[in-house]
Protein backbone atom coordinates (compact mmCIF):
# COMPACT_ATOMS: atom_id res chain seq x y z
CA UNK A 1 0.00 0.00 0.00
CA UNK A 2 1.38 3.40 -0.86
CA UNK A 3 1.32 6.58 1.21
CA UNK A 4 -1.73 8.69 0.39
CA UNK A 5 -4.02 5.68 0.15
CA UNK A 6 -7.38 6.33 1.80
CA UNK A 7 -8.76 3.44 3.86
CA UNK A 8 -12.29 3.09 5.14
CA UNK A 9 -13.50 1.21 8.17
CA UNK A 10 -15.92 -1.63 7.50
CA UNK A 11 -17.30 -1.34 11.06
CA UNK A 12 -17.86 2.41 11.48
CA UNK A 13 -17.48 5.83 9.77
CA UNK A 14 -13.72 6.05 10.31
CA UNK A 15 -11.53 6.94 7.34
CA UNK A 16 -7.77 7.29 7.42
CA UNK A 17 -5.04 8.43 5.11
CA UNK A 18 -1.94 6.28 5.10
CA UNK A 19 1.13 8.38 5.78
CA UNK A 20 3.53 5.46 6.36
CA UNK A 21 2.95 1.72 6.49
CA UNK A 22 4.48 -1.73 6.54
CA UNK A 23 3.04 -4.96 5.15
CA UNK A 24 0.66 -5.78 8.05
CA UNK A 25 -3.12 -5.57 8.08
CA UNK A 26 -4.56 -2.19 9.12
CA UNK A 27 -7.78 -2.62 11.07
CA UNK A 28 -10.51 -0.48 12.54
CA UNK A 29 -13.07 -1.72 15.04
CA UNK A 30 -11.33 -5.10 14.87
CA UNK A 31 -11.75 -5.69 11.11
CA UNK A 32 -9.41 -5.01 8.18
CA UNK A 33 -9.97 -1.62 6.55
CA UNK A 34 -10.75 -1.42 2.85
CA UNK A 35 -10.26 1.06 0.01
CA UNK A 36 -13.89 0.61 -0.98
CA UNK A 37 -16.55 0.52 1.69
CA UNK A 38 -18.65 -2.67 1.55
CA UNK A 39 -22.44 -2.22 1.37
CA UNK A 40 -22.98 -4.04 4.69
CA UNK A 41 -21.12 -3.02 7.84
CA UNK A 42 -19.33 -5.62 9.96
CA UNK A 43 -20.06 -5.68 13.68
CA UNK A 44 -17.73 -3.59 15.83
CA UNK A 45 -15.44 -5.63 18.10
CA UNK A 46 -15.96 -4.21 21.62
CA UNK A 47 -12.23 -4.59 22.25
CA UNK A 48 -11.57 -1.99 19.53
CA UNK A 49 -14.31 0.54 20.17
CA UNK A 50 -12.44 3.48 21.69
CA UNK A 51 -13.17 5.66 18.67
CA UNK A 52 -11.04 7.71 16.30
CA UNK A 53 -10.67 11.50 16.27
CA UNK A 54 -10.59 13.68 13.16
CA UNK A 55 -7.13 15.11 12.47
CA UNK A 56 -5.30 12.85 14.95
CA UNK A 57 -2.35 10.79 13.81
CA UNK A 58 -2.10 7.17 14.89
CA UNK A 59 1.18 5.28 15.11
CA UNK A 60 2.55 1.93 16.27
CA UNK A 61 5.34 1.52 18.81
CA UNK A 62 8.00 0.87 16.15
CA UNK A 63 7.08 3.92 14.07
CA UNK A 64 6.44 1.70 11.07
CA UNK A 65 2.84 2.80 10.65
CA UNK A 66 1.36 6.27 10.66
CA UNK A 67 -2.29 6.98 9.79
CA UNK A 68 -4.09 10.33 9.70
CA UNK A 69 -7.73 10.17 10.68
CA UNK A 70 -9.66 12.14 8.03
CA UNK A 71 -13.11 11.06 9.26
CA UNK A 72 -13.86 10.02 12.81
CA UNK A 73 -15.83 6.96 13.90
CA UNK A 74 -16.56 4.63 16.78
CA UNK A 75 -13.97 1.95 16.08
CA UNK A 76 -10.32 2.19 17.10
CA UNK A 77 -7.29 1.49 14.95
CA UNK A 78 -4.94 -1.47 15.14
CA UNK A 79 -2.42 -3.38 13.04
CA UNK A 80 -2.53 -7.17 13.30
CA UNK A 81 -4.56 -6.88 16.51
CA UNK A 82 -2.15 -4.45 18.23
CA UNK A 83 -3.76 -1.11 19.04
CA UNK A 84 -2.29 2.06 17.54
CA UNK A 85 -1.81 5.14 19.71
CA UNK A 86 -2.15 8.85 18.97
CA UNK A 87 1.04 10.63 18.05
CA UNK A 88 1.89 13.78 19.95
CA UNK A 89 3.14 16.29 17.43
CA UNK A 90 6.18 18.38 18.22
CA UNK A 91 4.66 21.81 17.84
CA UNK A 92 6.58 24.25 15.65
CA UNK A 93 5.96 27.97 15.73
CA UNK A 94 3.67 29.03 12.88
CA UNK A 95 5.91 30.16 10.07
CA UNK A 96 3.34 31.19 7.50
Amino acid sequence: MKPGTRLKSVTCDTEVMVIRCGVGVIECGGSAMAEVKPPEATALNPGFSGGTLLGKRYVDADGEYELLCVKSGEGSLSVGGVALVTKDAKPLPASD
Binding site: G4, I19, L54, G55, K56, L68, A89, P91, L92, A94, S95
Partner: peptide, 12 residues
Protein backbone atom coordinates in the same frame (compact mmCIF):
# COMPACT_ATOMS: atom_id res chain seq x y z
CA UNK B 1 0.54 17.80 2.08
CA UNK B 2 3.82 16.52 3.46
CA UNK B 3 4.74 20.07 4.49
CA UNK B 4 1.38 20.83 6.10
CA UNK B 5 0.89 17.47 7.82
CA UNK B 6 4.48 17.52 9.05
CA UNK B 7 4.36 21.02 10.55
CA UNK B 8 0.76 21.83 11.47
CA UNK B 9 -1.50 20.08 13.96
CA UNK B 10 -5.09 19.77 12.76
CA UNK B 11 -7.58 22.19 14.36
CA UNK B 12 -4.90 23.40 16.76
Amino acid sequence: LSYILGTVEFAS
